[in-house]
Amino acid sequence: MSGTEALAGFALFVGFAAPALLRRARWPQRAPGVAVLVWLGLMLSFVTSLALAAHHLVEPEKHRHAGLPSLLHACGLTHLTDLGLSTAALVPALVAAWPLGRVAAVLVRAGRERRRHSAVLDLVARPAAGLPALVLDHQVPAVYCLPGRRRRIVLTRGALEQLPPAQLHAVLAHEQAHLTGRHHLLKAAAQGFAEAFPGLPLGTAGREQTAALLEMAADDRAVRHHARRDLAAALGTVAAGLAPGAGLGATGSPVVARVRRLLSPARAPHPLARCATGALALAVPLLPFLLTCGPAAN
């Protein structure tokens, strides 16, 4: 099997079959942070396989000799040391640049929306007494955060009035987890990939699952210091509130499933299993190189 055929088969599996398998799996809800890494790893491996396949199509594989120089040549990495741009280097670079450009566009668009919304908050919001948040004079209970340079947590007057102190602090901890974990960057990566490859199951499912898993990861971080029942009750109260497009809200994914997960938690995976899965997620983007550059491709 040639390197191009191996890469095409790998891309088909990652782009179409892997998302269906991962969506049916139960372990992601037990380790949402690791599952997000797996989804992003699959996306990166898909882009890597396309870029390498483009290189092999432009410059068909030649006879390989032993040694590091031939390995670099087979992978197309010798072009990285060239001062000039050749077609064999430019085509895979353009393939890789397309999804990266979409991710950058998502970040720019979200940053623009956050700045506009932040300017409105400067005019209409007020600091919440004794809380690290701003209050909007609105009766519908809602809580969300705005990431970025001017990180803010926003809640409405309705949430301030309807949530008991324990529930209020629990949902604020959820939003703080979004900010501390910089979840908006991970969400933007999944969104940009989905926009770069519209209709691809990996993009569609990855965007949906990443958003839901990030909410679960923030839930898990919040319940380290707050009662699960308090956070579950708070989610039920603020379920009607929606975050702006540039923000991350506590109700950003199906609330019923998250409340059920909080009230009936499954046993977390063993730390060794989590580490192994995380390592696998980091290694997945390297598999296309092994397929096309390893002994099996000779």
Rank of each mutant, 00 (worst) to 15 (best):
A35C: 07
A53F: 10
G278M: 04
L214W: 04
S49T: 10
H63Q: 07
A283C: 00
C75M: 02
A173Q: 05
R229P: 05
A142I: 03
V255C: 06
D122A: 13
E161T: 08
K62I: 10
P295N: 04
L100K: 06
P265S: 04
R64M: 04
P244Y: 11
F10C: 00
H183A: 06
A250D: 03
G192Q: 07
F13L: 09
E175D: 13
A17R: 06
A279Y: 02
A266Q: 15
Q162L: 01
G206N: 02
G158I: 03
D220C: 01
A125V: 05
P288D: 10
V38W: 12
A194H: 12
A233T: 02
R102K: 11
L136V: 12
V255H: 00
G84L: 02
A212G: 08
L231D: 14
T156R: 13
A133C: 13
R112I: 11
G101A: 14
G130Y: 10
H225V: 05
P127I: 01
G247S: 14
T81G: 12
R261V: 04
G158P: 05
H270E: 12
T48I: 14
G101L: 09
C293D: 00
P69N: 01
A51L: 13
A6M: 01
A212Q: 01
L242G: 03
V171W: 15
L52V: 07
E113M: 10
G111N: 10
Q162G: 02
R224C: 01
L50F: 10
A266P: 08
V124I: 15
L44I: 07
G33N: 05
A17D: 08
H73R: 15
C145M: 11
P285E: 02
A119G: 15
F16H: 13
A205W: 05
R229V: 04
R157V: 14
L262A: 02
T48F: 14
A257C: 10
L123N: 11
A166Y: 05
L37F: 01
T277N: 03
R116T: 14
D220Q: 04
L85N: 05
P69D: 10
H65V: 06
E195P: 08
G199A: 05
A250L: 00
D137Y: 07
T292V: 03
K62N: 06
R150E: 12
F10A: 13
L286Q: 00
A96D: 04
L263E: 08
R152W: 10
G252D: 13
V108C: 07
R114A: 14
